[in-house]
């Protein structure tokens, strides 16, 4: 569209327009950042990344469900028999020693979300049963029968005191 016949000036014009388009495009892209970021979890949601749980009132053999990041976390205080049974087996479909799943043998902490389709399994007999599709887990949260492919996930947690755990940080 240049009326000018001097090739030099045409080249300079093209360069100027291209440079402006690049700078402007970068600005448009940068403007998208706050919009996209605003859909990520806000700081008050992120603050819920840690959950403190007092364990003192859980009796041996009993289980407590607490919410961590909106998900159910099963805290099972295992009896010596349950500990022995879990230690004796290596699991089923996804073998893993119990010692790697529990920081202290007495306490099993797992995310109560079935690794198949995300339902919450029920505590039934030894272990858990997921009623959505029939998966079974043992008292270490390891999958014994499918369709679930993997063991119940162990969340990051640490013992802040003898009877207090913090889920969310190690």
């Amino acid at each position: 569209m240049g009326d000018s016949n001097v090739p030099d000036s045409t080249g300079r014009r093209d360069f100027l327009i291209r440079a402006t388009a690049v700078v402007g495009g970068a600005g448009v892209a940068a403007t998208c950042v706050p919009f996209v970021a605003s859909m990520n979890p806000s700081s008050d949601v992120l603050a819920k990344a840690e959950t403190e749980v007092d364990l003192s009132d859980i009796t041996p053999g009993a289980m407590r469900t607490v919410a961590w990041q909106g998900k159910p976390v099963f805290i099972l205080r295992r009896t010596p028999e349950q500990i022995a049974a879990s230690a004796a087996s290596a699991g089923g479909l996804d073998p893993e020693p119990d010692s790697r799943r529990a920081q202290k043998p007495e306490w099993l902490v797992v995310i109560g979300v079935c690794t198949h389709m995300g339902c919450v399994p029920n505590k039934e007999g030894p272990g858990w049963v997921c009623h959505c599709h029939g998966s079974q887990y043992d008292d270490s949260g390891r999958v014994l029968r499918g369709p679930a492919p993997k063991n119940l996930e162990v969340p990051p947690y640490r013992f802040a005191a003898e009877n207090k755990i913090v889920i969310g940080t190690t």
């Binding site: 950042v33 706050p34 970021a37 605003s38 990520n40 806000s42 700081s43 008050d44 949601v45």
Partner: peptide
């Protein structure tokens, strides 16, 4: 206030 304080770039929007 949630938008202004907690939402990422909420104050900007």
């Amino acid at each position: 206030q949630h938008i202004m304080r907690d939402v990422n770039y909420g104050w900007l929007l």
